[in-house]
Structures are given as structure tokens and as C-alpha cells.
Write a protein that binds this DNA or RNA. Structure first.
Lengths: 237, 237
DNA sequence: CAGACGAATTGATTTTGATCAAGCGAAATG
DNA sequence: CATTTCGCTTGATCAAAATCAATTCGTCTG
């Protein structure tokens, strides 16, 4: 839960250097304005960034790590409804109250800036608005893809789909997708797939015994043949 | 599959009169421009509006009826990933290829206008862009809400959630939400909930025997106490 | 009105994944 | 260094929903 406000004032310039994300296309003048108010934070795994129902007063850019978006029921049942990887943008325009909770899945580093500054900036930059709009549409597509997984796939297909997702999304700069660390615990994977940890574990074992994957230290996964994995994921038409 | 191009040229003006939807806030001049190219169509239930993977060349407004958005797997398994009610807007900016299939669930009436005209209009009207952006965000929220339903709710909770959704969304102008027609067949409900038709049917029967709902002619539902239904839906925190 | 067809219900059985319970291994703690 | 704790795996059993199989109901059609 410890949050360290970074001393570096040019947080967003750093984002830009790293990956040309949402911050990347701002003009130097705009960046300057944002930077005056931005703060960079390092967060331990499992830190809540925004709570379900909370008022959100800032946007953020994920510099490093993975953030999970979760919904919780009254009796504690939980569903992860989205994963955000660096350099994703976090937060939304128009609405100030969050319908879900955002929590770091791994150790992470994020760069915060106040709603007011960002909104003022967006009002002047139509292409920034467009980029935010595009991102919303992409998240919508991802959510709907996952609905098919949740509603119609078997446990094995769900787990294979998850592995495929991580293999392709986790490290966009890495060309070799055949080896990666899982950013989620078994419990989180279960919450993402609508399964129990036991079932997730059993399916991992099965995929391992079938030679589709190899696992080292519980978190590191090796996929010799990504196409073969995709077949287990029962992909769409 | 029969599509009748309506003779009435002022299709969107009709939308405006009906409910002040997306078309509702256009200026008369803008409306005029759209109307020159818009076409009103009456569609039978089960008509495909856009196919998965197809190139989309137009936007549309739903004037009457319900449209289901579905995703299909290679082996025929299907998941409904969204429902659009009148006066919802159909289609999306930026992308021209559809990631899903849109099909009428009921008899419906829609008003089509070409991408090019709409895009040109949006380029000049920032508030129209904002409204489309807002809609995307709302659909995202709805999709994520449904992910919780698909991933973590029991069959009974799923069916109750569906009934609650229809009761509240189906007829926005109707104050009395206690009696309504189901816009979906049992097969469609099953595809929406990630269940089989048999399970859906059994849960209907159970809710009926518990006195939560009454059913007439398979399609008409009466809910004496909406709060009671909501409890069966196992609502979020 | 009889028959036919499709949609929905109901019943019997099977399968999948959840639950309950125990054990293992690695890292953290006293 | 022993011990606890946590995350994960594995096994046995149970329950929920899927599947298979008839019927029933309602509507359409000749």
C-alpha cells in the first residue's frame, strides 16, 4: 500500500520515451502543461488504484506492470473484467464515478495526472479525444471477445485462451512470444476465467502433460508452439 | 430477409420525433444532409444486419425492435455479447470491419445512413463525436456488467438478471415495468446467458413456482415485485 | 378443423467443474 | 535453523448444468 511520489517532474515525457502511448502524441507544449501536475508512483502488487464506486479525480498511464479491473458481488464473488498492460491509459472521460475497482496485479509504476488538466487538454486537442474514443472501442471489443470465452468455452479452452492472451499481450516489444511470466496468480486467473483455482490448476497440469506448455516456478510459462495452444483455445471463426 | 426501402425520405426526422436519440440533437441543416442519403427499412425477426467479418458501409438508428450482437465459434457455439434497443445507435467510427454479427431479435425498423456522410458530419460536430464516445463507454460498462453475470452467477441468478435487464431496458417510456414481452426466444436467452435452452426453461419454471414471475403465452412476463426479482439476480455490492 | 411444424417444457442420465480436504514446496519469519 | 505461511497441486466426492430423449403447447397451414 506504500505510494512513493516520484521526484521526477517530467513523468509523461518518460512515458513518451518508453513507448509513444497516449502521452506520446502530445505536443511538447501540452506535455509541459500535464507534467506540471503529474505524479509518478510505484505500486506493490495488489494495491488498489481506484475502488468500486469511488470518485475518480485523475487519469493515469501505466508505465510498467499489469492492472486488473474487477467487479465484486455482495457475497465476495469476484470477476476480473479487464486487464490493462503498459503502456495502457487508465481512466475515462465524462464519468467521475468508477463502476469497478482497479488493482495492480503485479508490481507496477503509473503516472497520474488530474482530471481537470487532462480534460482541459482534450477539449483543445480533437485527436486526443479520438484516441481516447478508439481506446474505449478497443476495450469494448476485448470485453466482448471475453464474453464468448466466459459464456461458451470449456475450462480447458478458457485456460488456453488466457495463456494465448498473455503470450500475445504481455510484452508487445518482445518478438519471441514463446516464453513469458504470468502476471496473475492462480486466484486471479480463476477470477478472470470464471473458474476456481483448483480447476485452473488442473487444466494447467493437463496442458503440461499434453506437451502444450511447460511451467517453471509456477509463474514462468514456455509455449513451444503457439498455434497448437491456439487450437486448444477453441478460437472463433 | 426481405428489406423494404421506405419511401419516406425524412427518416431521421422521424427518429427525432420518436425519442430524441442520437439523431435528436442534430441541427435541422445537419439532419437535412443525412436525410438525403438515409433509408428506412423494416426487418423481420432473425434478419442479419451485419455479418461477422463483413465490411460495414453504414451506420443505423434502431427505430423499433431489438437487435442482438452475437459472436460465433467455428463449431457453432454462439454468444450474444450485447442487445440494442430502440432508439440505440448502431455502428462504430474508425473501424470498417465488424468483429461481430448484428441480427434482429424481433421484428424491427431501422434507419440507415452511409458512413461517409455520417463521418463528414461528425468531423464538423464535436458534440456528436462526444455522444458516440459516451455510447461506447456505456456499452463497455454494460459488457463488463454482463461479464460478471456470465462468469460468476448461477443459472437462476443469470435468468433473474436477464429478466431484470429486460424489465428495465425494454420499454424506457413505460413507467410500469411489471409486465413486458420478452424480445428473445429461449434459444437466444440461452445464448445471451451462456446456458442451454433446457436450463433456461427450468429456471423460468422455478421462478414461476416461487411466485417471482408469471408467464403468459411463453413470451409475456409479469413481475409483481421487481425488488424481489432483483434479489434473485444476486446483485453486485 | 386436422395435421404439421417449431418452440418450449419436462424427465432421466451423464458430465463438468465446484467443493471439501489433504499435502507439497518455496519463501518469509521468529 | 526450525517453523509458519502462502500459493499451488492433487485427490475424493458432490452438485449444477449439459445432454439425450420424449412430450406438450401454440401457431400456422392446407
Amino acid at each position: 500500500m506504500d505510494i512513493h511520489i516520484a521526484e521526477i517532474p517530467v513523468a509523461c515525457r518518460a512515458c513518451e520515451a518508453r513507448h509513444g502511448g497516449v502521452c506520446g502524441t502530445l505536443t511538447p507544449a501540452e506535455l509541459c502543461e500535464l507534467n506540471k501536475y503529474s505524479a509518478r508512483r510505484r505500486l506493490d502488487a495488489g494495491t488498489e488504484v481506484v475502488g468500486q464506486g469511488e470518485t475518480v479525480s485523475s487519469y493515469a498511464n501505466i508505465i510498467r506492470g499489469v492492472v486488473k479491473l474487477t467487479k465484486m458481488m455482495a457475497d465476495g464473488r469476484q470477476q476480473i473484467v479487464g486487464l490493462q498492460f503498459a503502456p495502457d491509459f487508465l481512466g475515462r472521460p465524462f464519468v467521475s464515478e468508477s463502476a469497478l475497482s482497479a488493482e495492480t496485479a503485479t508490481d507496477a509504476e503509473i503516472c497520474n495526472f488530474p482530471r481537470s488538466v487532462m480534460d482541459r487538454l482534450a477539449a483543445r486537442a480533437p485527436d486526443l479525444k479520438d484516441r481516447l474514443h478508439r481506446q474505449a472501442l478497443q476495450e469494448l471489443d476485448e470485453a466482448r471477445d471475453w464474453m464468448l470465452t466466459l459464456g461458451r468455452k470449456s475450462a480447458q479452452e478458457k485456460v488456453a485462451s488466457f495463456l494465448y492472451l498473455i503470450a500475445t499481450h504481455s510484452d508487445p516489444e518482445e518478438v519471441d512470444k514463446s516464453s513469458f511470466d504470468l502476471p496473475l496468480s492462480r486466484a486471479d486467473i480463476a477470477d478472470f476465467l470464471g473458474l476456481t483455482i483448483e480447476t485452473v490448476s488442473r487444466q494447467f497440469t493437463k496442458l503440461r502433460k499434453d506437451g502444450v506448455i511447460a511451467i517453471e516456478n509456477n509463474r514462468h510459462v514456455i509455449v513451444p508452439d503457439l498455434d497448437r495452444l491456439m487450437q486448444f483455445a477453441g478460437n472463433d471463426r
